[in-house]
Amino acid sequence: MEELKYITEPLLKWFQINKRDLPWRRTKDPYRIWVSEIMLQQTRVEAVKPYYARFLETLPTVKDLAEADEETLLKLWEGLGYYSRVRNMQKAAIQIMEEHGGEFPADHAKLLKLKGIGPYTAGAVGSIAFDLPVPAVDGNVLRVMSRITADASDISIQKTKKEWENRIYEIMPAENPGDLNQALMELGATVCLPNGIPKCESCPVRKYCEAYRRNSTMLYPVKAEKKARSQEFLNVFFCIYENQIAIGKRPSKGLLSGLWELPNCNRDIAPPAALQEMGILQGEIEPMKGQKHIFTHVEWHMDCYFVKVSEKTEAELLWITKEDAEQNYALPTAFKKIWQEGVKKIDSM
C-alpha cells in the first residue's frame, strides 16, 4: 500500500502530456460524461465517437433523453448492443428530472441510486464532473493495478474490485481526482495492454511495477475462465411482399427484449411450417448465406432464407418499406448482415 502512493505524481504528469483528445474530455458536463461512459462499456473508443456525436445532437440534455420516444432512443443506440443500457439511461434521466430538478446530483451516494449506474460509472462521473475523490475501477484499472502490485486475486469477482476501489481511494489526490481515474484507464488502454505484450518501455510507473521487476507482466491480471457459451440454432427469414419487408417484435423479457428482429424460429421447425405460423401462406423460399452471431453468453447459428411472399394474412409481423426500416427502426447487429444481403437481392430484382 505504501508503494502505491508513489505512482500518483508520475502518472498524472504522463496523462497531461499523453492523453488522447477525446470529445468527452473537453467538457465537465455530467450528462455528456455519463453518456460517454455508458457507451464506452464493451465498445471501442473509435467506434463510440460517431454514436456520441449523433446521440448528443439529437438528445442534448437530460430532459431530452427523459422525454425521447423508444424508437428514437433505440435507433440512436443501434449497433452499440446491450440495449438495456440505453433503456436504463432513460430511466435514470427520468429520475434526475423527477427527483433532482433536472440536475445531475453532485453526490456519490445519490449517483449510485440512479438506474443503471454502478460503482464504476458513479466514480467516473462523480470524479470527472464534480471532482469527488472517488475511484472508478474498470477492467483497464484492474489490469494496471494487478500488474503494479503483482496481485494474483481473481479480477472477475466482485470482492477483488471492491478491494481495489478501497485501495485506490487511499491514493486519490484532493485536486482533480478525475484525472487519476482517467490516467489509470488511459494507461490500461494505451500502454498496459490487455492483449499482447504491454508497452512497458513507455510506462511512467514501471519503476514501481512489481510484475515488470519480476518479468512476469503476462501473468497478470488473473481471471477465472469463462463458462462456455450455450448455442442456439435458428432459421431466419428475410420476407418481402410487394415493396415491403417483414419485421417482428421480440418478447419483452430475455435476450434483445422488446427489440425489432427479422422473423425467425428454432431450426428444428421446417421453414414452410414456420412461415405458415407467421401468417405467410405462399412464397418462394431461397436459401441465403448462413450467419453466426456471438453474444456474451450464447451463440446464434442461423440458417437464412429470402422469401418472396405471394400470399399472407394479417399476423403479428410488421410490414414496412426498406427506407422506413432503415430510418426509424433499430435492428440488432445479429440481423444486420442478413438484412444487407436481403436488400441487395431486392435491389438486383
Rank of each mutant, 00 (worst) to 15 (best):
K113V: 11
L114T: 05
L114A: 07
G118P: 04
G118F: 06
Y120N: 08
T121H: 05
A122E: 05
G123Y: 00
V125K: 05
G126P: 05
S127E: 00
S127Q: 03
I128T: 04
F130V: 09
L132V: 14
P133L: 11
P133M: 11
P133T: 04
V134Q: 05
P135A: 02
A136I: 04
D138K: 03
D138V: 02
N140D: 04
N140L: 01
N140W: 00
L142I: 08
L142R: 01
R143G: 02
R143T: 02
M145C: 04
M145P: 01
M145A: 01
M145V: 10
R147E: 04
T149G: 09
A150D: 03
A152F: 05
S153T: 08
S153M: 06
D154S: 08
I155S: 06
I157H: 02
I157Y: 03
Q158C: 07
Q158F: 07
K159D: 06
K161A: 11
W164I: 15
E165V: 15
E165K: 07
E165L: 10
N166T: 11
R167S: 11
R167Q: 13
Y169F: 13
E170D: 15
M172L: 15
M172Y: 12
P173D: 07
A174S: 14
N176W: 06
N176F: 08
P177R: 04
P177N: 09
G178A: 10
G178I: 11
L180E: 07
N181V: 13
Q182A: 04
Q182I: 12
Q182D: 03
L184A: 01
L184Y: 03
L184E: 01
E186N: 02
E186W: 00
E186A: 00
E186L: 03
L187Q: 03
V191N: 07
N195H: 09
I197S: 09
K199H: 13
K199Q: 13
C200K: 06
S202M: 15
C203W: 05
P204N: 10
P204Q: 09
R206W: 13
C209A: 07
A211C: 12
A211M: 09
Y212L: 13
Y212D: 12
R214M: 09
T217D: 09
T217Y: 10
M218W: 08
L219W: 05
Y220D: 06
P221Q: 08
P221N: 10
V222S: 12
A224T: 15
A224R: 07
A224I: 12
E225G: 13
E225K: 14
K227T: 02
K227W: 01
R229E: 01
R229F: 01
R229Y: 00
E232D: 00
F233M: 00
F237W: 07
C239T: 12
I240M: 12
Y241D: 14
Y241E: 14
Y241F: 15
E242N: 15
N243R: 14
I245M: 14
A246K: 10
A246P: 14
I247E: 02
I247G: 09
I247Q: 06
I247S: 13
